[in-house]
Nucleic acid binder design. Structure first.
Lengths: 342, 342
DNA sequence: AGCGTGACCGAAAACGTTTCCGGAACATAA
DNA sequence: TTATGTTCCGGAAACGTTTTCGGTCACGCT
């Protein structure tokens, strides 16, 4: 191995070593027909012996596809996103597509510029919780870029492919559970106002109350950033109310965990003195004490579904359903019980 | 906007629209000198008006760099990995590098083939917990690929750049803490045998015992896959011992959480009846009850450090330190206390 | 012998950039 | 005046593939 310069090998050098043309090497590389078994064998050996791999930029340029798919995600760390990511990654790898991961930090402008970059680099993208308006996304579509939105923050135009979870039904299940346990004074800690998920779940919450003949009390609906600390603060506010709730329906598991912490800090016991229901069912929900009753979103499944939608788009199948809503399901654990007074 | 075919624009069309050569457009795109303000202004406007972005494959081919960095990670979901990923992502985005994310599922062969792919696509890579032998990695190095290993599983050749955490010192801090609290019978749930981290921490564990004049009891060292359930099983075994430990030093937070669950299931109280120390300090550690005393690994910082090492390699700076070990630090929370008998 | 048919393979164009090189226009210095 | 820069710009090569198109050859048939 007199590998003087450790330059990358090119297809031309492999062709030379094997005594064939570059076209033939390319055919072997891509498993095309029109090569005799003998030649194929020979070329494969040379390729292997020299550890050659094709330059993907050249391939992308020549073939017009890069085999790359962008994933735009606000943050990498939170379990919510990494669960979706994990599902998407699995499905993409099955399709031999590579992931270009782009965190956007919830920043609109950064997201726009990342998308611009991605347009020249990837075949398509998954956009999780996009900060962009429907109009902006439509423009992207008109420019010929193919993408799928995961869990849209706001209502999007019909033409924009999207995957989301059944928020209203999930909220309804959670509320029905609490109502069946006998709760009457049920608070809701919502997500940020205006988010689709927030409003859909609010609808479910109110509808369930109405169905049970309970007049919704505006004081029992409070908004929080979907993280633990804001959740704790919101719960503290609710527990300080003159007439505090006996149950809290939280926008996500983080908020629910904050609520449990708030209760504990006040010497209240969950679920005896306060029932708490979360949303998402990330791993945290099983770690916390008491284990959280929560509405499960099939996050990995959402990722996989988005990929299958996208890959159909990439193959130019136009006629498919552009919108998928996956079912949510209540998982009952230990954070809910009948109210004390019942 | 009579955008009949929504084909992507090329630099040639932009040049035509602006009435200049493609060389000039390229210069504007890349902020090179040698363009009059006037022309630059004009070209920028045309670019913007038409929403043009360069084809990265072509750029990569021509310029010899793709601006892509691979990240090989066993799994995406676990907090340990996403924390590192988050740090690396931040640092890469500051350097205008894009991430190609490749989960390998802890599978050696998959990792090898992913690396092969990445060699033709990216400028370099971060390899987290590589499954590969030092020899395999050296071969990669010899082929001219640039990469940094994060948290090596086994000892690597000097030439291979790596970033890791101070395992031995971390273990020592944890043990010292338990010893100072008065524990004498301290068990260890280790990670998989042979892992560098496992052996280093084992060394710290034994050294601390020795320094305290305690003879290590082989029965108190048990191995577990670093997840919650195996952790619980291992703890159950320890608690069933004729003479059970009063404290457990776990290989990571997941195992520690499993240990807490095992104790609770037996009616033991943590930390009163059993002290537990974890390792990593992922978010779980603050969610669990009682909050976990644990050795903090600066995961995001490790990601950032690896990126800064890699980017120096990419710029062909050869002389830098190739090995970085970041300090670990004990974070005392609520899962440790003096033993009952003390 | 002549012809058609597959099977196999090579030449060369094309993909969209970057960058080297040199030329035009103009200013400045001797 | 000529020589010498400077500044700005365009032509064209180069990057490493894929893919089209056509050519060669062996073979079997008429």
């Amino acid at each position: 191995m007199s590998q003087a310069t450790s330059q990358r090998l090119t297809i031309r050098q492999i062709a030379e070593l094997a005594g064939v043309s570059i076209a033939t090497v390319s055919r072997v590389l891509n498993d095309r027909g029109d090569v005799s078994d003998e030649t194929r064998e020979l070329v494969s050996r040379v390729i292997h012996e020299n550890g050659y791999t094709a330059n993907r930029s050249a391939r992308g340029l020549s073939a017009g596809r890069t085999g790359l798919v962008g994933i735009l995600v606000p943050l990498v760390y939170p379990a919510y996103f990494s669960a979706i990511l994990a599902g998407a990654a699995e499905a993409l790898s099955e399709r031999d597509l590579q992931i270009v991961l782009s965190p956007t930090g919830h920043e609109h402008d950064r997201e726009v510029s990342v998308l611009d970059r991605l347009r020249g680099l990837t075949d398509g993208a998954l956009i999780i919780l996009p900060e962009e308006s429907s109009e902006e996304l439509e423009r992207l579509l008109d420019r010929g870029y193919r993408f799928v939105v995961l869990d849209p923050l706001m209502p999007l135009d019909e033409r924009i492919p999207s995957v989301s979870a059944a928020h209203t039904s999930g909220a309804d299940q959670a509320m029905r559970h609490l109502l069946e346990l006998g709760h009457r004074r049920i608070a809701q800690i919502t997500g940020p106002r205006g988010w689709l998920a927030t409003e859909d779940r609010r609808r479910g919450y109110r509808a369930a109350l109405a169905a049970a003949g309970i007049l919704p009390d505006p004081a029992l609906e409070v908004e929080a950033v979907p993280e633990v600390d804001p959740g704790r603060a919101a719960a503290e506010y609710l527990l300080d109310l003159p007439e505090p709730p006996t149950a809290i329906f939280a926008f996500n598991d983080n908020i629910a965990i904050g609520a449990i912490q708030a209760a504990r800090a006040r010497g209240l016991r969950v679920p005896d003195d306060l029932s708490v229901v979360g949303f998402d069912d990330v791993e945290h929900a099983t770690i916390v004490t008491p284990a959280l009753t929560t509405v499960r979103q099939p996050l990995a499944e959402m990722g996989r579904t988005a990929v299958s939608l996208l890959s159909r788009l990439l193959e130019r199948h136009r006629f498919e359903t552009l919108h998928v809503e996956l079912a949510t399901r209540l998982v009952v654990r230990d954070s809910t019980a009948p109210p004390r007074s019942a």
